[in-house]
């Protein structure tokens, strides 16, 4: 967790440096920002909406927006916060538009299991992952975001609060509610097997 936060800070400094370079006319530095952040953004979008194509579209849209916003960036907020916020907003909008549960349909591709590697443990793992995601998907919007950011992305309370535009106390409370609900929703064997 500490390592993750250290990385975050490093990424943030690098982003600021690259944004300044882009603002001074070095357009190539924009792709350095993309290179550094794209996998997190794709992963977040994918976890939120569960469809590879949608996640790719969201990631592209987020970075296109970033391309347009960077020349006017004022450094009042952290860039990664803006990226996460935009990704979540887009994913939420898309989800609302589709009005159906995505996770279940594309669940098998979440983990890279090739035919040769498949063992009983892998199948069990995949099954457990599917059930977990179904349970997370059933959570109310903000609780789902908290679980994704805090546990799946490993963000700190303050970072999550910044992204969700709420107080740290709200994040703690939402995570508490989400975990309570998850422990009630998920089959015991899914939680017990590790």
């Amino acid at each position: 967790m500490e390592k993750q936060n250290l990385n975050m800070n490093r990424v943030d400094c690098a982003d600021d440096h690259d944004i300044r370079a882009v603002q001074q006319g070095d357009q190539q530095m924009f792709y350095s920002i993309v290179q550094r952040n794209q996998s997190q953004i794709f992963r977040l979008a994918y976890r939120f909406c569960g469809q590879q194509e949608d996640a790719q579209d969201i990631t592209q849209e987020v970075f296109y927006k970033a391309y347009k916003i960077i020349p006017h960036w004022k450094f009042k907020a952290k860039f990664f916060t803006w990226l996460y916020q935009t990704t979540l907003n887009m994913a939420r909008t898309l989800r609302r538009k589709r009005k159906k549960i995505f996770f279940v349909a594309d669940m098998t591709s979440r983990i890279d299991f090739t035919a040769q590697q498949q063992t009983i443990t892998d199948i069990e793992k995949r099954e457990r992952s599917t059930q977990l995601q179904r349970a997370i998907d059933r959570l109310p919007g903000r609780q789902r975001i908290v679980v994704l950011l805090r546990i799946y992305e490993g963000l700190k309370i303050n970072q999550t609060a910044e992204i969700m535009r709420c107080r740290p106390g709200t994040v703690k409370s939402l995570l508490n509610q989400a975990l309570k609900r998850l422990s009630q929703d998920m089959p015991r064997e899914v939680v017990d097997v590790r």
Partner: peptide, 18 residues
Amino acid sequence: LIGTLKGDAEATATLDHI
């Protein structure tokens, strides 16, 4: 519960195949 979720997060952290 958190252990299970973290385990799943690690398993799905790499999405290079897609």
